[in-house]
Amino acid sequence: MSQVTMTVNGKTASGDVEGRTLLSQFLRENLNLTGTHVGCDTSQCGACVVHVNGEAVKSCTMLAAEADGADVATIEGQANADGSLNTIQQAFQDHHGLQCGFCTPGMVMSAAALLKDNPKPSEAEIRDYLEGNICRCTGYHNIVKAIMAASGQDVSAIAAE
């Protein structure tokens, strides 16, 4: 066991971890931040996407020890200070960008990472960026639509399913 300390959603968090403890496991089990979902645990689905030092990573494929000293952002830190949904989250709700919601934390974190680098992505760029985020419910159209809307673009031309 060794101690790791990181900033998670703006607050300092420490805990004892084994070498093999995954970041996803540390967030969920040590910090009780269970919004980060583990869908596949094999680096395929993207439900576990969080930001480490501002970059989207699959937290099931990173060791907690590798995040020692890092600045981590999870879905729990995405809402506005007054508790209301942020722009991306609200757009997911408004455009039915989720059904069961399992993939949603990863989708929202990936969307946030995309919009940080590319504030007005095209539909094709959104689909390409979400290559590592799998959704088994929505068929993706409404997720793409929500992200377009969150970036302030007209979504009337995108098909709804």
Binding site: S43, A56, V57, K58, G132
Partner: peptide, 9 residues
């Protein structure tokens, strides 16, 4: 290569 999260690591 892979997807954005894979490319970041």
């Amino acid at each position: 290569i892979g997807d954005p999260a894979v490319r970041n690591r």
